[in-house]
Design a binder for these strands. Structure first.
Length: 812
RNA sequence: GCUGAGGUGGAGGAAUUGGUAGACUCGCCAGCCUUAGGAGCUGGUGCCUUUAAAAGCGUGCGGGUUCGAGUCCCGCCCUCAGCACCA
């Protein structure tokens, strides 16, 4: 054994990282018993890596390293989700190209990640902004198009009239442009949409068999928001028009005493309708446009609305005339953009009706006087349906006055961005083909070309449509992407008929590249397919995917959607991409606020690695608290894990002997069980605290047997791989990365004695040391002989509660 | 507002799932050591009364079930995350 000097993380971490790189220790071979670990690949921002990034990486590194020790061939890849707004905004500000900025950011991220000793397979690195990658993002989009799942649709975007740019919701702060402070307006824009709603049921059903955390499943389920109900037409009095509503409670139709339209409802554009207070209505519509959906639906504020004067609707069930309102708490995006209001049985309608003095008519019994009752019950004052139950009546009323309808909260995905830094949408618009397609619709095979006349797919062999270099990243005055100004790029000849045509100048959202990256890791250099079928069959599905809570709805749903679609068109072999999904909590800056470059509170791991080493940092990241919870960064916390490793170093240098105490062996076997189970349950914090307990005991006893010590190092290795490798080598071990994961001996887990808790009337009065397996009679005697019993058992014992190997409770 | 998660010492948190609340770590206090450092070692540290022994109180608030509740039930309050063009 070598006589050791002080623990020097800098030296040993460099040594092992060099070795792993040279020996390609973690490159995944495409054979054997596979395991695929995945975490959400980072966006390489200009601020560099922060301590929050490392959490997910470390957790999945621990799992990946454990799996290798369990004999799996592990794929643990890394890549970059590099398209996005911040880089583009940086380009607009500085003139530095997004390509160049990304390259520089990547360099920093790579150096930082490498310094932490993650067992990534660096040979499979992917980058969403690499044309060789986004060629396939474009290819997948064209498949959606070809199958009729991409369509043009008019939507509203946030528009800053001063910057002349479309804004993301995030860039709109309190209705104003984040950068210049100007009032943001809504602007109509034709955009590409992806029909994710066509997959709503599949996305819902797919969840059943997946091992996702229950709250993640629930979030996805609620986001999809399937509800069954009815569509019912309300005629407008003395006119042809009808107002269609969706309701989940057709049983309350008799209680509908007014209607409410969303401010965007198409009926309101009809000048012939005879709205008496047209100007007032228009004013209200204008105001509503300035508000976000969250503002509009917040219950905190007073309900607002305007009655349409001179227009009435007819309740089809009793032919009563009822007033029509517009109010911004009704949204266009959900249902039909109009509701029948049943104030007696809907909270929000109730509030609105009280404010406007509208009739509140009870039609379901069970409510209290003067309150709204939204439960189900027996119908009252409902004509022939009176006396029926809600369910039964709902079905019958639907049959007579409407039709059944399934409604989702989920909306189609707006897929266009008027920005430069994204994948170009690989379509061209050809006037001549537009005419041609309208005339011979039946003969067009490509559904996208049929549904969107004039839009022609760029042929596969011309992919990728590369982002051209531009001089100026400033958007144009008309709101189009800077790409629209590059005439030689925009003007092409139609791939179908060779007539002059124009490229689509919108780009894809950042979500596009991240919706399928896990497929590309499998076969990152393939030029013929997005990945080889054989390799996908080998590696899919991803066995364990961890990511942030904030991605549990959008990204996770989008990528499941893409994968399900690719499965349906027989490109990928499994319908669900992720077998298991967990989440990590965010790390907050000191003071409990989000880390952000603008606040200047981003904690950079570099100086921490420099001073304490990667192993101490990794341990602290995992030790801080429960993995799925948001935690506040505390720089002093690192002292604790650094001291722990120093103690381990001392134990390894001084106390490794031939023998050890029976107690220490027992602690080790409990530790093996605990660490193994805690890793699987992502309870990394308690795994580490148990290792600390073990280490404290080793130091107290000043002696640990070599065989035990080596097992301990194997347990430590996934968490702190550098020091574990070094200490393992110090005692003559080799290849700790691939040693079998230690097993525990059940017999060594149970101790011979335990502390019997003595309670009197449920209050703990003391403990008595006793042998395991002690029965109630013996325990009772033991207590009576003991001082505790003598002191506290006074009077008659009415009852004794006994829990084996734990406690005895006397009721006196 | 809707959806999801949470609330335990000075701080981060632990608690075999209904059985000794506060493991482990930070911090703090006292002592030792020292070539004075944010190193190491020993002991202490929930609150309150107390020299001590001992007792009482204690897991956001109010109620309930139970021999026994941080854990289960009912009602309330507060914090964080997401809300569809941030990633």
């Amino acid at each position: 054994m070598r006589k050791m000097e002080k623990y020097n993380p800098k030296e040993i971490e460099a040594k092992w990282q060099r070795k792993w790189e040279q020996e390609k220790t973690y490159e995944a071979k495409n054979k054997g018993k596979k395991w695929y670990s995945l975490f959400e690949f980072p966006y390489p921002s200009g601020a560099g890596l922060h301590t929050g990034h490392i959490r997910s990486n470390t957790a999945m590194d621990i799992i990946s390293r454990k799996r290798r020790m369990e004999g799996y061939e592990v794929l643990y890849p890394i890549g970059w989700d590099a398209f996005g707004l911040p880089t583009e905004n940086y380009a607009i500000k500085t003139g530095i190209s997004p390509q160049q900025a990304t390259e520089e950011n990547l360099k920093t991220f790579k150096r930082q990640l490498k310094s932490l000793g993650f067992s990534f397979d660096w040979s499979r690195e992917v980058n969403t902004t690499d044309p060789a990658y986004y060629k396939w993002t474009q290819w997948i989009f064209l498949k959606f198009f070809e199958h009729g799942l991409a369509y043009k649709h008019k939507t509203q975007i946030n528009w800053c009239p001063s910057c002349k740019i479309g804004l993301a919701n995030e860039e709109v702060v309190a209705g104003k442009c984040e950068r210049c402070g100007a009032e943001v307006v809504k602007k109509e824009k034709e955009q590409w949409m992806l029909k994710i709603t066509a997959y709503a049921d599949k996305l819902l059903a797919g969840l059943d068999e997946l091992d996702f955390l229950p709250e993640i499943k629930l979030q996805q389920k609620n986001w999809i928001g399937r509800s069954e109900g009815a569509e019912i037409d309300f005629p407008v009095k003395d006119r042809e028009e009808k107002i269609k509503v969706f309701t989940t409670r057709p049983d309350t139709l008799f209680g509908a005493t007014y209607m409410v339209l969303a401010p965007e409802h198409p009926l309101l554009m009809n000048h012939e309708l005879g709205i008496g207070n047209y100007d007032e209505v228009q004013e209200y519509i204008k105001n509503a446009r300035g508000k976000t959906e969250i503002e509009r639906t917040s219950d905190g504020r007073e309900k607002t609305g305007v009655e349409l004067k001179g227009v009435k609707a007819i309740n089809p069930v009793n032919l009563e005339e009822i007033p029509i309102f517009i109010a911004d708490y009704v949204l266009t995006g959900y249902g039909t953009g109009a509701i029948m209001a049943v104030p007696a049985h809907d909270e929000r309608d109730f509030e609105f009706a009280k404010k406007f003095g509208l009739e509140i008519r009870e039609v379901i019994s069970g409510g209290k006087e003067g309150e709204c009752f939204s439960g189900e019950g027996e119908l009252v004052s409902s004509g022939e349906f009176t006396g029926m139950g809600s369910r039964d009546a709902g079905e019958k009323i639907t049959k007579s006055f409407g039709q059944e309808k399934v409604q989702y909260k989920l909306r189609d995905w707006v897929f266009s961005r008027q920005r430069y830094w994204g994948e170009p949408i690989p379509l061209v618009f050809c006037e001549r083909c537009a005419e041609r397609i309208k005339n011979q619709e039946s003969r067009i095979k490509n559904e996208g070309e049929k549904q969107n006349p004039g839009w022609i797919a760029v042929p596969d062999d011309e992919l990728p449509v590369e982002l051209p270099k531009v001089e100026n990243y400033q958007p144009r005055d008309d709101g189009e992407s800077p790409l629209a100004s590059i005439e030689e790029w925009v003007n092409v000849s139609c791939p179908k008929c060779k007539a002059p045509a124009k490229r689509e100048t919108d780009t894809m959202p950042n979500w596009a590249g991240s919706s399928w990256y896990f497929l590309r890791y499998i076969d990152p250099k393939n030029d013929e397919e997005l990945a080889s079928k054989k390799l996908m069959k080998h590696w899919l599905p991803v066995d364990w995917y961890n990511g942030g809570v904030e991605h549990v709805t959008l990204h996770l749903l989008y990528s499941r959607f893409w994968n399900q679609f690719l499965y349906d068109i027989k490109v990928v072999p499994v319908s669900e991409p992720y077998k298991k999904r967990t989440k990590h909590g965010m790390i907050l800056a000191e003071g409990g606020v989000k880390m952000s470059k603008s606040k200047g509170n981003v904690v950079n791991p570099d100086p921490i690695v420099e001073e304490f080493g990667a192993d101490s940092l990794r341990l602290y990241e995992m030790f801080m608290g429960p993995f799925d919870q948001a935690l506040v960064w505390d720089r002093r916390g690192i002292f604790g894990t650094a001291r722990f490793l120093e103690r381990a170093w001392r134990a390894g240098s001084e106390y490794v002997k031939e023998d050890e105490s029976k107690e220490l062996t027992g602690t080790l076997h409990k530790l093996i069980k605990k660490v193994g189970e805690d890793i699987e349950g992502m309870n990394f914090n308690t795994a580490i605290s148990s290792m600390m307990v073990y280490m404290n005991q080793c130091l107290e006893e000043k002696g640990v047997a070599k065989s035990s010590w080596m097992k301990f190092l194997q347990l430590l290795h996934p968490f702190a791989p550098h020091i574990a490798s070094e200490l393992y080598e110090m005692v003559g071990g080799k290849d700790i990365d691939f040693q079998p994961w230690p097993e525990y001996d059940k017999k060594l887990l149970v101790e011979e004695s335990f502390e019997l808790v003595v309670q009197i009337n449920g209050k703990t009065r003391g403990t008595i040391s006793a042998e395991r397996g002690l029965d109630q009679k013996a325990a009772q005697e033991l207590v009576r002989e003991n001082d505790i019993g003598k002191k506290w058992i006074v009077g008659e014992v009415k009852k004794v509660i006994f829990v084996e190997n734990r406690l005895i409770n006397f009721i006196v």
